[in-house]
Amino acid sequence: MLLNARILPYVLILPVTLFLCLFFIYPFVLVSQQAFGSSEGGWSLDNFREVVDYWKFPISLKNTLLLAAAVVPIQLALALLMATMVSKMEKGRDMVLYIWTIPLGISDLAAGIIWLAIFEQSGFLNSMLNGMGVIDKPVNFLTYQNPWIVFVAIALAEIWRATAIMLVILVAGIGLIPKEYYEAADVFGASKWKQFTRITFPMLRPSLQTALVLRVILAFEIFAVVAALGGTLFPVLMGETYAYQFDLLNSGAAAAMALIILAISIGFTLIILRILRVPKGASI
């Protein structure tokens, strides 16, 4: 049977669409119902009021945003630097990429535990400092007295774990920029730095959008690394959502938290898309 060429694409994406409707849109509607429902039935904002008024909410919101603000720019800078370096390599490029992307293969909880093994009282950092004679007895770094060390440990673990996802996207993006643009830039007097700011960066905007949106959304969903390294010392939005659902058995509040995280993610996605938009007519 010959399918009409105009209909065929829609027929082919139908299974995926059905799958998404069944396992994404439908649960999303259920979660929304829970979030906007109330014990008396009908619609209400009670759940949102409850979670926002709770004393831990501002702290977890602040922590989540701070962490994203610290981690994502560093990851972006590192990923850009690494991608530029890898793109300049002629031999062994794939090998280096494989090694750099190893952390991607590790679950976030495992990554948190690896860094816990470094920072905990009997961990590698203590043994090293002890061995070098900097400290004479093991120090417990990850306590409420050292909130900044907890923060730095979490940030380090996140940077180590999730920079590669941006790297992979940016390497692909840089590979798409024709070499001739750099030759033209060379001839017309652009320094290497200018070539980066005037050619690589603007022409990389589509890849940067993808990489940043992905990374920022994941940053707002940070959970396991924080749980492993900070426990209850460093509340974040996702951790609070988990606590509502499984510790306090308040699924309405958990659903409201989930929607708040979603709203923040959508907000930042729109901001990123706006900042890195390609002007109308400028095809890249």
Partner: peptide, 18 residues
């Protein structure tokens, strides 16, 4: 190249699209 007093026209133009 920039210090040679030259300018160049490339085969694929290399006109910056952005």
């Amino acid at each position: 190249p920039k210090d040679r007093g030259i300018a160049m026209v490339f085969q694929n133009y290399a006109v910056f699209p952005h």
